[in-house]
Amino acid sequence: MQTHPLRIYFSFGRLWTIARNTMTEIIRQKFFYILVIFAVVVLVSSRYFSQFSMQDLDQVKFVKDFGLAAIKIFGTLIAIVGAAQLLHLELENRTIYPILAKPVFRGEFLLGKYLGMIALLLLTTLMMSAIFGGVLFYTEHQLLATAGRGEMLPVGVGYQMATPEVVQQIIKQTRDPNLLKAIALIYFQFVIVSSIGLLIATFATSVIFNVIATVMIYLCGHLESTARQAWLGDPSPVTKFMLLIITFFVPDLSAFDIVDSVVLGQAVPLNLVIRTIGYGIFYSAIVLGVAWCIFQEKEI
């Protein structure tokens, strides 16, 4: 006669198995390939695009601005589309049946899918960052070569003489450690966006709805602090209630946007970065907790 254990516990082994399989699943999808190839092309060609910038002659600033924006846009697209498909494909293709028919907790399945998604986003962000670093290094190399020839340099608001101060300024800008802080905060935006996408997937019936809803929340998240500043002076209780609801449900994604400061070469305190990352982890954990509760009761 078959005997089974009286109780089984949450297993990191099962979590890792599902996470790893999720990474394989996304990597083998066409949209992922296309987005990654496109991101690589855009990042590599950022120096080429700098020629078309009318306002900005400062090449280092342009490459930093362009590169960080590319990492953010492509990462966000992968996070939104990937998270929207995570559960939907499992349910539509019914691949979830044999998995949940094994001794696997639904929470392990959901968390495993999420971890696979954010691990893949981490790899993608690291890869895009490495390419971005390469382009920055190349830009620095080109500018220093120009300086070596005694020619004028496109830095600041126009062309300047290649003085030792200007060369130092270029090196400081291209090797700015604040760039890493900006990339870290961009990544944690992906972490939040993925958790929102997964939460919506637990009750949404179509990928399109999921993508649209996530994009809406993403946009609201970026406008939240602006709305808060605009509405804070309004004494109306309706406005205050609206503000409370939005602040409670929508993440403040503008807190993660330090790209402008970094591009301008302003220092970003590490303390602020750590606090913002902590907020991102806390918010994602709450969202995943709600997703877990919904998925636990879902009839598959």
Binding site: Q2, T3, H4, P5, L6, R7, I8, N93, R94, T95, Y97, P98, A101, K102, P103, V104
Partner: peptide, 14 residues
């Protein structure tokens, strides 16, 4: 834990 003792082949393998 009851699923430790069960193997399942779904209709049309998914």
């Amino acid at each position: 834990a009851s699923r430790v003792s069960v193997g399942f082949l779904p209709e049309n393998p998914y």
